[in-house]
Design a protein around this nucleic acid. Structure first.
Length: 410
DNA sequence: GCCAGTAGCTAAGCCACAGAGAGTT
DNA sequence: TGAACTCTCTGTGGCTTAGCTACTG
Protein backbone atom coordinates (compact mmCIF):
# COMPACT_ATOMS: atom_id res chain seq x y z
CA UNK A 1 0.00 0.00 0.00
CA UNK A 2 1.44 3.30 -1.04
CA UNK A 3 1.04 6.67 0.43
CA UNK A 4 -2.44 7.90 1.15
CA UNK A 5 -3.73 10.90 -0.73
CA UNK A 6 -3.05 13.92 1.43
CA UNK A 7 -6.28 15.53 0.38
CA UNK A 8 -8.99 12.91 0.69
CA UNK A 9 -6.93 10.59 2.88
CA UNK A 10 -8.73 7.71 1.38
CA UNK A 11 -7.26 6.82 -1.95
CA UNK A 12 -3.75 5.83 -2.74
CA UNK A 13 -1.77 8.79 -3.94
CA UNK A 14 -0.43 8.57 -7.45
CA UNK A 15 0.51 12.09 -8.35
CA UNK A 16 3.04 14.37 -6.76
CA UNK A 17 2.50 18.10 -6.99
CA UNK A 18 5.75 19.97 -6.58
CA UNK A 19 4.10 23.29 -6.03
CA UNK A 20 2.00 21.96 -3.20
CA UNK A 21 4.54 19.40 -2.13
CA UNK A 22 1.61 17.10 -1.84
CA UNK A 23 0.81 13.55 -2.82
CA UNK A 24 -2.60 13.21 -4.35
CA UNK A 25 -4.79 10.64 -5.96
CA UNK A 26 -5.88 11.43 -9.47
CA UNK A 27 -9.32 12.40 -8.40
CA UNK A 28 -8.10 14.91 -5.87
CA UNK A 29 -5.43 16.08 -8.24
CA UNK A 30 -8.14 17.07 -10.61
CA UNK A 31 -10.26 18.63 -7.93
CA UNK A 32 -7.46 20.60 -6.40
CA UNK A 33 -5.85 21.77 -9.59
CA UNK A 34 -8.97 22.69 -11.42
CA UNK A 35 -9.80 25.22 -8.74
CA UNK A 36 -8.25 28.19 -10.47
CA UNK A 37 -5.79 29.26 -13.12
CA UNK A 38 -2.92 29.41 -10.70
CA UNK A 39 -3.38 25.96 -9.36
CA UNK A 40 -3.66 24.67 -12.89
CA UNK A 41 -0.12 25.83 -13.45
CA UNK A 42 1.19 23.48 -10.82
CA UNK A 43 3.41 20.95 -12.43
CA UNK A 44 2.74 17.41 -11.36
CA UNK A 45 4.26 14.11 -12.03
CA UNK A 46 3.95 10.59 -10.75
CA UNK A 47 4.83 9.77 -7.21
CA UNK A 48 7.84 7.58 -6.62
CA UNK A 49 6.51 4.11 -6.01
CA UNK A 50 9.41 3.20 -3.82
CA UNK A 51 9.84 5.98 -1.31
CA UNK A 52 6.36 7.37 -1.85
CA UNK A 53 7.57 10.79 -0.99
CA UNK A 54 9.41 12.20 -3.95
CA UNK A 55 8.31 12.95 -7.49
CA UNK A 56 9.19 10.21 -9.89
CA UNK A 57 11.49 11.15 -12.72
CA UNK A 58 12.09 7.81 -14.32
CA UNK A 59 9.90 4.89 -15.26
CA UNK A 60 11.66 1.55 -15.06
CA UNK A 61 10.10 -0.34 -17.87
CA UNK A 62 11.19 -3.80 -16.86
CA UNK A 63 10.20 -3.40 -13.26
CA UNK A 64 7.12 -1.42 -14.18
CA UNK A 65 7.85 1.03 -11.46
CA UNK A 66 8.22 4.80 -11.33
CA UNK A 67 11.09 6.06 -9.28
CA UNK A 68 12.44 9.32 -8.05
CA UNK A 69 16.02 10.18 -8.73
CA UNK A 70 17.18 8.91 -5.39
CA UNK A 71 15.49 5.58 -5.62
CA UNK A 72 16.50 5.20 -9.21
CA UNK A 73 20.06 5.89 -8.25
CA UNK A 74 19.97 3.45 -5.38
CA UNK A 75 18.63 0.85 -7.74
CA UNK A 76 21.69 1.19 -9.93
CA UNK A 77 21.04 3.65 -12.66
CA UNK A 78 21.67 2.46 -16.14
CA UNK A 79 21.11 -1.18 -15.40
CA UNK A 80 17.54 -1.13 -16.52
CA UNK A 81 15.49 0.23 -19.36
CA UNK A 82 14.12 3.50 -18.29
CA UNK A 83 11.75 6.07 -19.57
CA UNK A 84 11.96 9.63 -18.42
CA UNK A 85 8.77 10.91 -16.89
CA UNK A 86 7.49 14.28 -17.79
CA UNK A 87 5.46 16.69 -15.80
CA UNK A 88 2.09 18.00 -16.72
CA UNK A 89 0.06 20.99 -15.80
CA UNK A 90 -3.56 21.89 -16.17
CA UNK A 91 -6.09 19.11 -16.19
CA UNK A 92 -5.21 16.74 -18.99
CA UNK A 93 -7.68 14.16 -20.10
CA UNK A 94 -7.32 10.48 -19.57
CA UNK A 95 -6.16 10.03 -23.12
CA UNK A 96 -3.55 12.68 -22.70
CA UNK A 97 -2.35 11.30 -19.45
CA UNK A 98 -2.09 7.94 -21.03
CA UNK A 99 -0.10 9.56 -23.80
CA UNK A 100 2.32 10.84 -21.27
CA UNK A 101 2.28 7.73 -19.16
CA UNK A 102 1.05 4.92 -21.28
CA UNK A 103 1.57 2.52 -18.42
CA UNK A 104 -0.68 4.43 -16.09
CA UNK A 105 -3.91 2.91 -17.15
CA UNK A 106 -2.52 -0.39 -18.24
CA UNK A 107 -0.62 -0.94 -15.11
CA UNK A 108 -2.52 0.91 -12.51
CA UNK A 109 -0.97 -0.31 -9.33
CA UNK A 110 -4.19 0.36 -7.56
CA UNK A 111 -6.38 -1.53 -9.85
CA UNK A 112 -9.16 -1.34 -7.38
CA UNK A 113 -8.94 2.36 -7.25
CA UNK A 114 -12.11 3.05 -9.03
CA UNK A 115 -12.20 6.55 -7.78
CA UNK A 116 -8.95 7.35 -9.39
CA UNK A 117 -9.97 5.75 -12.60
CA UNK A 118 -13.00 7.87 -12.60
CA UNK A 119 -10.77 10.74 -11.89
CA UNK A 120 -8.78 10.10 -14.98
CA UNK A 121 -11.82 9.79 -17.06
CA UNK A 122 -13.23 12.99 -15.84
CA UNK A 123 -10.14 15.03 -16.27
CA UNK A 124 -10.40 17.89 -18.65
CA UNK A 125 -7.87 19.75 -20.67
CA UNK A 126 -6.64 23.10 -19.70
CA UNK A 127 -3.53 23.56 -21.65
CA UNK A 128 -1.81 26.69 -20.56
CA UNK A 129 1.15 26.58 -22.74
CA UNK A 130 2.07 29.70 -24.57
CA UNK A 131 1.32 30.08 -28.20
CA UNK A 132 4.87 29.76 -29.39
CA UNK A 133 5.24 26.30 -28.01
CA UNK A 134 1.71 25.20 -28.21
CA UNK A 135 0.46 22.40 -30.23
CA UNK A 136 -0.12 22.55 -33.91
CA UNK A 137 -3.57 23.66 -34.94
CA UNK A 138 -5.02 20.23 -34.73
CA UNK A 139 -5.20 20.18 -31.02
CA UNK A 140 -4.54 21.92 -27.82
CA UNK A 141 -2.43 19.21 -26.45
CA UNK A 142 0.77 18.55 -28.25
CA UNK A 143 1.48 14.95 -27.87
CA UNK A 144 4.56 15.40 -29.99
CA UNK A 145 5.92 17.68 -27.44
CA UNK A 146 5.34 15.04 -24.93
CA UNK A 147 7.12 12.55 -27.04
CA UNK A 148 9.96 14.91 -27.52
CA UNK A 149 10.05 15.33 -23.83
CA UNK A 150 10.76 11.71 -23.34
CA UNK A 151 13.13 11.58 -26.19
CA UNK A 152 15.30 14.37 -25.06
CA UNK A 153 15.44 12.97 -21.62
CA UNK A 154 16.34 9.63 -23.00
CA UNK A 155 19.11 10.99 -25.04
CA UNK A 156 20.85 11.53 -21.85
CA UNK A 157 19.93 8.26 -20.29
CA UNK A 158 20.84 6.28 -23.32
CA UNK A 159 24.01 8.21 -23.39
CA UNK A 160 25.10 6.29 -20.36
CA UNK A 161 24.26 2.90 -21.56
CA UNK A 162 24.88 3.46 -25.22
CA UNK A 163 21.60 1.80 -25.84
CA UNK A 164 18.51 3.54 -26.97
CA UNK A 165 15.95 2.48 -24.51
CA UNK A 166 12.49 3.36 -23.55
CA UNK A 167 11.31 4.24 -26.96
CA UNK A 168 7.75 3.32 -27.19
CA UNK A 169 7.41 3.98 -30.84
CA UNK A 170 9.61 3.16 -33.81
CA UNK A 171 9.50 6.74 -34.89
CA UNK A 172 10.96 7.77 -31.67
CA UNK A 173 14.44 6.94 -32.68
CA UNK A 174 14.15 8.99 -35.82
CA UNK A 175 12.75 11.92 -34.00
CA UNK A 176 15.37 11.48 -31.43
CA UNK A 177 18.00 11.66 -34.06
CA UNK A 178 16.48 14.83 -35.31
CA UNK A 179 16.54 16.25 -31.91
CA UNK A 180 20.08 15.18 -31.53
CA UNK A 181 21.02 16.74 -34.81
CA UNK A 182 19.61 19.99 -33.71
CA UNK A 183 20.67 19.86 -30.20
CA UNK A 184 23.87 18.02 -30.66
CA UNK A 185 23.75 16.97 -27.12
CA UNK A 186 21.46 17.48 -24.27
CA UNK A 187 23.37 17.21 -21.11
CA UNK A 188 21.70 17.06 -17.81
CA UNK A 189 23.36 17.98 -14.61
CA UNK A 190 22.32 14.73 -13.20
CA UNK A 191 25.15 13.32 -15.18
CA UNK A 192 27.19 14.33 -12.27
CA UNK A 193 24.87 12.52 -10.02
CA UNK A 194 22.87 9.42 -10.61
CA UNK A 195 23.78 9.22 -14.20
CA UNK A 196 27.38 9.91 -13.70
CA UNK A 197 29.78 8.80 -16.25
CA UNK A 198 29.29 11.35 -18.93
CA UNK A 199 31.69 14.14 -18.72
CA UNK A 200 31.03 17.58 -19.92
CA UNK A 201 30.05 18.15 -23.44
CA UNK A 202 32.60 16.65 -25.69
CA UNK A 203 30.50 16.80 -28.76
CA UNK A 204 30.93 20.48 -29.13
CA UNK A 205 34.59 20.68 -29.32
CA UNK A 206 34.15 23.14 -32.10
CA UNK A 207 31.73 25.10 -30.13
CA UNK A 208 33.42 28.00 -28.44
CA UNK A 209 30.62 28.10 -25.97
CA UNK A 210 31.04 24.56 -24.95
CA UNK A 211 34.72 25.07 -24.83
CA UNK A 212 34.15 27.66 -22.26
CA UNK A 213 32.08 25.31 -20.32
CA UNK A 214 33.71 22.32 -18.87
CA UNK A 215 31.75 20.19 -16.51
CA UNK A 216 34.91 18.82 -15.08
CA UNK A 217 35.84 22.21 -13.97
CA UNK A 218 32.55 22.73 -12.34
CA UNK A 219 32.95 22.48 -8.68
CA UNK A 220 30.07 21.81 -6.41
CA UNK A 221 30.85 23.15 -3.06
CA UNK A 222 28.00 23.42 -0.66
CA UNK A 223 29.63 24.98 2.25
CA UNK A 224 26.71 24.38 4.47
CA UNK A 225 25.20 21.20 3.37
CA UNK A 226 22.75 21.07 6.20
CA UNK A 227 21.58 24.51 5.41
CA UNK A 228 20.64 23.39 1.99
CA UNK A 229 18.16 20.98 3.40
CA UNK A 230 17.07 22.49 6.61
CA UNK A 231 16.90 26.02 5.41
CA UNK A 232 13.42 27.30 5.18
CA UNK A 233 11.78 27.55 1.88
CA UNK A 234 11.26 31.15 2.59
CA UNK A 235 14.94 31.70 2.54
CA UNK A 236 15.43 29.90 -0.67
CA UNK A 237 12.52 31.67 -2.15
CA UNK A 238 13.95 34.91 -1.07
CA UNK A 239 17.26 34.06 -2.53
CA UNK A 240 15.73 33.12 -5.76
CA UNK A 241 13.33 35.93 -5.92
CA UNK A 242 16.03 38.38 -5.29
CA UNK A 243 17.75 37.10 -8.34
CA UNK A 244 15.96 37.92 -11.47
CA UNK A 245 17.19 36.55 -14.72
CA UNK A 246 19.88 39.14 -14.92
CA UNK A 247 20.90 38.39 -11.42
CA UNK A 248 20.93 34.71 -12.00
CA UNK A 249 23.56 35.10 -14.58
CA UNK A 250 25.68 37.45 -12.72
CA UNK A 251 29.36 37.29 -12.32
CA UNK A 252 30.06 34.78 -9.67
CA UNK A 253 31.69 31.53 -10.43
CA UNK A 254 29.53 28.56 -10.87
CA UNK A 255 30.08 26.04 -8.21
CA UNK A 256 27.89 23.16 -9.00
CA UNK A 257 29.22 19.73 -8.79
CA UNK A 258 28.73 16.66 -6.78
CA UNK A 259 29.34 13.04 -7.10
CA UNK A 260 26.31 11.55 -5.54
CA UNK A 261 22.65 11.34 -6.08
CA UNK A 262 22.17 13.20 -2.89
CA UNK A 263 24.08 16.10 -4.26
CA UNK A 264 22.14 16.02 -7.42
CA UNK A 265 18.97 16.03 -5.49
CA UNK A 266 20.27 18.79 -3.38
CA UNK A 267 20.52 20.74 -6.53
CA UNK A 268 17.09 19.87 -7.67
CA UNK A 269 15.41 19.93 -4.33
CA UNK A 270 14.37 22.81 -2.24
CA UNK A 271 17.84 24.14 -2.28
CA UNK A 272 17.88 24.43 -5.99
CA UNK A 273 16.94 28.00 -5.99
CA UNK A 274 19.89 28.77 -3.87
CA UNK A 275 22.11 26.93 -6.23
CA UNK A 276 20.60 28.83 -9.06
CA UNK A 277 22.24 31.94 -7.82
CA UNK A 278 25.43 30.41 -8.99
CA UNK A 279 26.20 30.03 -12.60
CA UNK A 280 28.73 28.86 -15.07
CA UNK A 281 31.51 31.15 -15.89
CA UNK A 282 30.41 31.37 -19.47
CA UNK A 283 27.03 32.67 -18.53
CA UNK A 284 26.16 36.26 -18.54
CA UNK A 285 23.24 38.52 -18.91
CA UNK A 286 23.47 38.17 -22.60
CA UNK A 287 22.95 34.51 -22.35
CA UNK A 288 19.99 35.12 -20.15
CA UNK A 289 18.48 37.21 -22.81
CA UNK A 290 19.26 34.55 -25.29
CA UNK A 291 17.44 32.08 -23.23
CA UNK A 292 14.48 34.32 -23.01
CA UNK A 293 14.48 35.01 -26.67
CA UNK A 294 14.48 31.35 -27.33
CA UNK A 295 10.84 31.24 -26.53
CA UNK A 296 10.09 33.18 -29.60
CA UNK A 297 12.27 31.10 -31.82
CA UNK A 298 10.83 27.69 -31.59
CA UNK A 299 12.66 26.37 -34.57
CA UNK A 300 16.10 27.65 -34.04
CA UNK A 301 16.05 27.03 -30.40
CA UNK A 302 14.15 23.81 -30.45
CA UNK A 303 16.91 21.92 -28.81
CA UNK A 304 17.13 24.30 -25.97
CA UNK A 305 13.42 24.40 -25.58
CA UNK A 306 13.07 20.71 -25.76
CA UNK A 307 15.48 20.29 -22.96
CA UNK A 308 13.47 22.67 -20.90
CA UNK A 309 10.07 21.69 -22.10
CA UNK A 310 10.83 18.17 -21.22
CA UNK A 311 10.00 19.08 -17.70
CA UNK A 312 6.86 21.04 -18.04
CA UNK A 313 4.76 23.18 -20.19
CA UNK A 314 6.99 26.09 -19.94
CA UNK A 315 5.41 29.26 -21.04
CA UNK A 316 6.41 32.75 -21.69
CA UNK A 317 4.69 33.72 -18.54
CA UNK A 318 6.36 31.11 -16.50
CA UNK A 319 9.11 32.24 -14.29
CA UNK A 320 12.23 30.43 -13.45
CA UNK A 321 10.56 28.83 -10.55
CA UNK A 322 8.54 26.89 -12.98
CA UNK A 323 11.73 25.52 -14.35
CA UNK A 324 12.67 24.42 -10.94
CA UNK A 325 9.32 23.10 -9.96
CA UNK A 326 9.22 20.76 -12.82
CA UNK A 327 12.62 19.39 -12.05
CA UNK A 328 14.60 21.38 -14.50
CA UNK A 329 18.22 21.01 -13.92
CA UNK A 330 20.39 23.67 -12.56
CA UNK A 331 22.27 23.99 -15.75
CA UNK A 332 19.16 24.57 -17.69
CA UNK A 333 18.39 27.42 -15.48
CA UNK A 334 21.62 29.12 -15.87
CA UNK A 335 21.45 30.91 -19.11
CA UNK A 336 23.07 29.78 -22.25
CA UNK A 337 23.17 26.05 -22.09
CA UNK A 338 26.54 24.60 -22.75
CA UNK A 339 25.24 22.67 -25.69
CA UNK A 340 23.76 25.60 -27.44
CA UNK A 341 25.27 26.80 -30.62
CA UNK A 342 26.06 30.42 -31.09
CA UNK A 343 23.65 30.68 -33.92
CA UNK A 344 24.25 33.65 -36.13
CA UNK A 345 21.52 36.08 -35.50
CA UNK A 346 19.41 36.60 -38.52
CA UNK A 347 17.33 39.68 -38.78
CA UNK A 348 14.29 37.64 -37.96
CA UNK A 349 15.88 36.10 -34.96
CA UNK A 350 17.15 39.45 -33.93
CA UNK A 351 13.74 41.01 -34.01
CA UNK A 352 12.26 38.08 -32.18
CA UNK A 353 14.94 38.35 -29.66
CA UNK A 354 14.41 42.01 -29.10
CA UNK A 355 10.71 41.36 -28.80
CA UNK A 356 11.38 38.71 -26.26
CA UNK A 357 13.68 41.00 -24.37
CA UNK A 358 11.02 43.65 -24.39
CA UNK A 359 8.44 41.21 -23.09
CA UNK A 360 10.83 40.05 -20.46
CA UNK A 361 11.56 43.55 -19.30
CA UNK A 362 7.89 44.35 -19.28
CA UNK A 363 7.15 41.35 -17.22
CA UNK A 364 10.01 42.17 -14.96
CA UNK A 365 8.36 45.46 -14.25
CA UNK A 366 4.99 44.04 -13.45
CA UNK A 367 5.92 40.84 -11.78
CA UNK A 368 4.94 40.19 -8.24
CA UNK A 369 6.57 37.55 -6.18
CA UNK A 370 4.45 35.46 -3.98
CA UNK A 371 5.00 36.25 -0.39
CA UNK A 372 4.42 33.52 2.02
CA UNK A 373 2.28 34.76 4.88
CA UNK A 374 2.93 32.82 8.03
CA UNK A 375 0.32 34.42 10.17
CA UNK A 376 -2.90 35.23 8.45
CA UNK A 377 -4.22 36.95 11.52
CA UNK A 378 -1.37 39.41 11.45
CA UNK A 379 -1.89 39.98 7.80
CA UNK A 380 -5.55 40.65 8.35
CA UNK A 381 -4.64 43.04 11.11
CA UNK A 382 -2.09 44.85 9.01
CA UNK A 383 -4.51 45.05 6.14
CA UNK A 384 -6.95 47.10 8.12
CA UNK A 385 -4.47 49.07 10.16
CA UNK A 386 -4.37 52.79 9.54
CA UNK A 387 -1.19 54.32 8.22
CA UNK A 388 0.64 57.55 7.69
CA UNK A 389 2.87 57.43 4.65
CA UNK A 390 2.80 53.72 4.81
CA UNK A 391 3.72 53.52 8.45
CA UNK A 392 1.41 52.18 11.03
CA UNK A 393 0.00 54.72 13.40
CA UNK A 394 -1.34 54.33 16.87
CA UNK A 395 -4.99 53.70 17.16
CA UNK A 396 -6.71 57.00 17.54
CA UNK A 397 -3.94 59.04 15.96
CA UNK A 398 -4.48 61.02 12.82
CA UNK A 399 -3.94 58.98 9.72
CA UNK A 400 -3.75 59.62 6.02
CA UNK A 401 -4.65 56.20 4.81
CA UNK A 402 -7.37 53.96 6.06
CA UNK A 403 -7.49 50.62 4.26
CA UNK A 404 -11.12 50.36 5.19
CA UNK A 405 -11.91 53.77 3.80
CA UNK A 406 -9.42 54.68 1.13
CA UNK A 407 -11.10 57.98 0.38
CA UNK A 408 -9.98 59.25 3.73
CA UNK A 409 -6.90 61.39 3.43
CA UNK A 410 -5.55 64.58 4.87
C1' DG B 1 36.98 57.37 -23.42
C1' DC B 2 35.63 59.91 -19.40
C1' DC B 3 32.49 62.51 -16.55
C1' DA B 4 28.19 64.47 -14.76
C1' DG B 5 23.32 64.35 -14.74
C1' DT B 6 19.08 61.79 -15.08
C1' DA B 7 15.90 57.95 -14.90
C1' DG B 8 14.58 53.62 -13.30
C1' DC B 9 14.78 49.93 -10.22
C1' DT B 10 15.50 47.39 -5.79
C1' DA B 11 16.29 46.52 -0.96
C1' DA B 12 16.07 48.19 3.52
C1' DG B 13 13.83 50.39 7.05
C1' DC B 14 10.08 52.46 9.52
C1' DC B 15 5.72 52.31 12.03
C1' DA B 16 1.91 49.87 15.78
C1' DC B 17 0.40 45.97 17.67
C1' DA B 18 -1.43 41.07 18.16
C1' DG B 19 0.27 36.89 19.18
C1' DA B 20 3.81 33.26 19.76
C1' DG B 21 7.11 31.63 22.74
C1' DA B 22 10.32 31.82 26.54
C1' DG B 23 10.99 32.70 31.20
C1' DT B 24 9.34 33.33 35.90
C1' DT B 25 6.32 32.72 39.83
C1' DT C 1 4.81 19.18 37.80
C1' DG C 2 1.52 21.95 35.74
C1' DA C 3 -0.96 26.36 35.59
C1' DA C 4 -0.87 31.26 35.47
C1' DC C 5 1.39 35.28 34.53
C1' DT C 6 4.92 38.47 32.55
C1' DC C 7 8.08 39.80 29.21
C1' DT C 8 10.43 39.73 24.74
C1' DC C 9 10.43 39.16 20.08
C1' DT C 10 8.31 38.35 15.50
C1' DG C 11 5.68 39.44 11.58
C1' DT C 12 2.39 42.06 9.00
C1' DG C 13 1.64 46.06 4.62
C1' DG C 14 2.36 50.58 2.52
C1' DC C 15 5.42 54.04 1.88
C1' DT C 16 9.94 56.48 1.77
C1' DT C 17 14.65 56.63 0.96
C1' DA C 18 19.31 55.29 -0.05
C1' DG C 19 22.02 52.96 -3.20
C1' DC C 20 22.88 51.00 -7.47
C1' DT C 21 22.85 50.52 -12.59
C1' DA C 22 22.00 52.04 -17.19
C1' DC C 23 21.58 55.55 -20.31
C1' DT C 24 22.39 60.14 -22.40
C1' DG C 25 24.73 64.36 -23.59
Amino acid sequence: MGRICEFCREQRSIVYCRSDAACLCLSCDRNVHSANALSQRHSRTLLCERCNSQPAVVRRIDEKVSLCKNCDCIAHAGSDKRQALSCYTGCPSAAELSTIWSFLLDNNPSGDDSTCKKGIGSLSITDNRPADIQAPPQGKFNSHNTSATVEVSEIHISDKSNVLMGSSTPALGNRLNKVEQIAGSVNFPSSKGCYSGVKGSTIYEDDPFSQDFNMDEVNLSFENYEELFSGSLDNTNQLFENNDIDGLFGTKDMSVSGSSCQDADAVEGSSMRRVMTMQPACSNAESADSLMSCKTQPTICFARQASILSFSNLGGENNAEDYQECGASTMLLMGEPPWSHPYPESSLASSSRSNAVLRYKEKKKTRKFDKHVRYESRKARADVRRRVKGRFVKAGDAYDYDPLNETRSF
